[in-house]
Protein backbone atom coordinates (compact mmCIF):
# COMPACT_ATOMS: atom_id res chain seq x y z
CA UNK A 1 0.00 0.00 0.00
CA UNK A 2 1.20 3.54 -0.77
CA UNK A 3 2.61 5.00 2.45
CA UNK A 4 -0.09 7.35 3.72
CA UNK A 5 2.53 9.32 5.60
CA UNK A 6 3.74 10.46 2.17
CA UNK A 7 0.39 11.67 0.88
CA UNK A 8 0.11 15.43 1.55
CA UNK A 9 -3.67 15.58 1.10
CA UNK A 10 -4.22 12.95 3.82
CA UNK A 11 -1.78 14.67 6.16
CA UNK A 12 -3.51 17.99 5.59
CA UNK A 13 -6.95 16.63 6.51
CA UNK A 14 -5.61 15.00 9.69
CA UNK A 15 -3.62 18.05 10.78
CA UNK A 16 -6.57 20.38 10.15
CA UNK A 17 -8.80 18.10 12.19
CA UNK A 18 -6.30 18.00 15.05
CA UNK A 19 -6.21 21.80 15.19
CA UNK A 20 -9.94 22.35 14.70
CA UNK A 21 -10.96 19.70 17.23
CA UNK A 22 -8.20 20.87 19.64
CA UNK A 23 -7.18 17.29 20.31
CA UNK A 24 -3.77 15.83 21.09
CA UNK A 25 -3.75 12.82 18.79
CA UNK A 26 -5.12 11.87 15.40
CA UNK A 27 -4.68 8.38 13.98
CA UNK A 28 -5.74 6.72 10.76
CA UNK A 29 -5.99 2.93 10.55
CA UNK A 30 -6.69 1.07 7.31
CA UNK A 31 -7.11 -2.46 6.17
CA UNK A 32 -4.25 -3.64 3.98
CA UNK A 33 -4.99 -4.05 0.28
CA UNK A 34 -4.26 -7.75 0.50
CA UNK A 35 -5.25 -9.82 3.53
CA UNK A 36 -7.35 -8.91 6.50
CA UNK A 37 -4.73 -7.01 8.55
CA UNK A 38 -5.60 -3.52 9.74
CA UNK A 39 -2.72 -1.22 10.69
CA UNK A 40 -2.28 2.37 11.85
CA UNK A 41 -0.88 4.07 8.75
CA UNK A 42 -0.74 7.65 9.93
CA UNK A 43 -0.59 9.40 13.29
CA UNK A 44 -0.15 12.98 14.39
CA UNK A 45 0.64 14.06 17.94
CA UNK A 46 2.09 10.62 18.66
CA UNK A 47 4.44 10.12 21.64
CA UNK A 48 6.38 7.25 20.02
CA UNK A 49 6.34 5.02 16.93
CA UNK A 50 4.56 2.05 18.53
CA UNK A 51 1.52 2.72 16.32
CA UNK A 52 3.55 1.73 13.24
CA UNK A 53 4.03 -1.79 14.62
CA UNK A 54 0.51 -2.34 15.95
CA UNK A 55 -1.78 -4.58 13.95
CA UNK A 56 -5.38 -3.90 14.93
CA UNK A 57 -7.12 -7.02 16.23
CA UNK A 58 -10.48 -7.66 14.55
CA UNK A 59 -13.31 -6.94 16.97
CA UNK A 60 -10.94 -5.79 19.74
CA UNK A 61 -10.26 -2.33 21.09
CA UNK A 62 -11.63 0.84 19.63
CA UNK A 63 -10.42 0.36 16.03
CA UNK A 64 -11.10 -3.38 15.91
CA UNK A 65 -14.66 -2.93 17.17
CA UNK A 66 -15.32 -0.14 14.68
CA UNK A 67 -14.05 -2.20 11.73
CA UNK A 68 -16.09 -5.21 12.79
CA UNK A 69 -19.29 -3.29 13.56
CA UNK A 70 -19.11 -0.22 11.29
CA UNK A 71 -20.28 1.99 14.19
CA UNK A 72 -18.73 5.05 15.82
CA UNK A 73 -17.31 4.84 19.33
CA UNK A 74 -16.38 7.21 22.12
CA UNK A 75 -14.32 6.53 25.25
CA UNK A 76 -14.34 9.43 27.68
CA UNK A 77 -12.40 8.10 30.68
CA UNK A 78 -10.14 5.15 29.81
CA UNK A 79 -9.84 2.58 31.37
CA UNK A 80 -13.12 3.14 33.19
CA UNK A 81 -16.34 1.82 31.64
CA UNK A 82 -14.67 -0.07 28.80
CA UNK A 83 -15.75 -3.43 27.40
CA UNK A 84 -13.16 -6.16 27.80
CA UNK A 85 -9.65 -5.80 29.18
CA UNK A 86 -7.36 -2.76 29.25
CA UNK A 87 -4.95 -4.67 27.02
CA UNK A 88 -7.65 -4.93 24.34
CA UNK A 89 -6.99 -1.21 23.67
CA UNK A 90 -3.35 -1.06 22.50
CA UNK A 91 -3.49 2.35 20.82
CA UNK A 92 -4.90 3.92 24.01
CA UNK A 93 -2.08 2.35 26.04
CA UNK A 94 0.65 3.10 23.48
CA UNK A 95 -0.30 6.77 23.21
CA UNK A 96 -1.44 7.15 26.84
CA UNK A 97 -4.85 8.28 25.66
CA UNK A 98 -7.62 8.71 28.22
CA UNK A 99 -10.35 9.75 25.83
CA UNK A 100 -11.01 9.11 22.18
CA UNK A 101 -13.66 9.36 19.51
CA UNK A 102 -13.39 7.20 16.43
CA UNK A 103 -15.43 6.66 13.29
CA UNK A 104 -15.31 4.07 10.50
CA UNK A 105 -14.16 4.76 6.95
CA UNK A 106 -16.25 2.92 4.37
CA UNK A 107 -15.09 1.67 1.01
CA UNK A 108 -17.75 -0.01 -1.16
CA UNK A 109 -20.10 0.12 1.86
CA UNK A 110 -17.66 -1.98 3.92
CA UNK A 111 -15.79 -0.53 6.95
CA UNK A 112 -12.10 -0.77 6.11
CA UNK A 113 -10.59 2.03 8.11
CA UNK A 114 -10.80 4.10 11.29
CA UNK A 115 -10.23 7.76 11.97
CA UNK A 116 -9.52 8.38 15.64
CA UNK A 117 -9.01 11.55 17.64
CA UNK A 118 -7.81 11.38 21.21
CA UNK A 119 -6.76 13.28 24.31
CA UNK A 120 -4.53 12.40 27.23
CA UNK A 121 -7.11 13.48 29.79
CA UNK A 122 -10.72 12.50 30.39
CA UNK A 123 -12.94 14.35 27.98
CA UNK A 124 -16.38 14.11 26.42
CA UNK A 125 -16.23 15.02 22.75
CA UNK A 126 -18.88 17.59 21.92
CA UNK A 127 -21.35 17.09 19.07
CA UNK A 128 -19.52 19.80 17.17
CA UNK A 129 -16.19 17.92 17.40
CA UNK A 130 -17.91 14.64 16.55
CA UNK A 131 -19.32 16.31 13.42
CA UNK A 132 -15.81 17.54 12.50
CA UNK A 133 -14.46 13.99 12.76
CA UNK A 134 -17.39 12.62 10.74
CA UNK A 135 -16.80 15.25 8.01
CA UNK A 136 -13.05 14.57 7.91
CA UNK A 137 -13.76 10.84 7.59
CA UNK A 138 -15.90 11.52 4.52
CA UNK A 139 -13.12 13.62 2.96
CA UNK A 140 -10.56 10.90 3.73
CA UNK A 141 -12.81 8.21 2.23
CA UNK A 142 -12.94 10.21 -0.99
CA UNK A 143 -9.19 10.87 -1.05
CA UNK A 144 -8.32 7.26 -0.29
CA UNK A 145 -10.75 5.98 -2.92
CA UNK A 146 -8.97 8.15 -5.49
CA UNK A 147 -5.43 7.36 -4.37
CA UNK A 148 -5.46 3.86 -2.96
CA UNK A 149 -8.70 1.92 -3.25
CA UNK A 150 -9.12 2.66 -6.99
Amino acid sequence: MTELRELPAIIEVCEKLKTAAACEFVGLALQNETGPDVRWHYASGNLNDKYKRITVRFGKGIAGKIISSGSKMMISDFPNQIFGKVTDYPIMLAEKLISSYAVPLFFNYVPKGVLLVGNRESHVFSEEVQQMVDDSALVLEQLLKEQIFR
Binding site: N48, D49, K50, Y51, K52, R53, I54, T55, R57, T87, P90, L93, A94
Partner: peptide, 8 residues
Protein backbone atom coordinates in the same frame (compact mmCIF):
# COMPACT_ATOMS: atom_id res chain seq x y z
CA UNK B 1 3.12 -9.04 21.63
CA UNK B 2 5.04 -6.65 19.33
CA UNK B 3 2.29 -6.72 16.71
CA UNK B 4 -0.36 -6.16 19.41
CA UNK B 5 1.27 -3.40 21.49
CA UNK B 6 4.01 -2.08 19.20
CA UNK B 7 6.62 -2.78 21.90
CA UNK B 8 9.84 -4.34 20.55
Amino acid sequence: YTSTFGIL
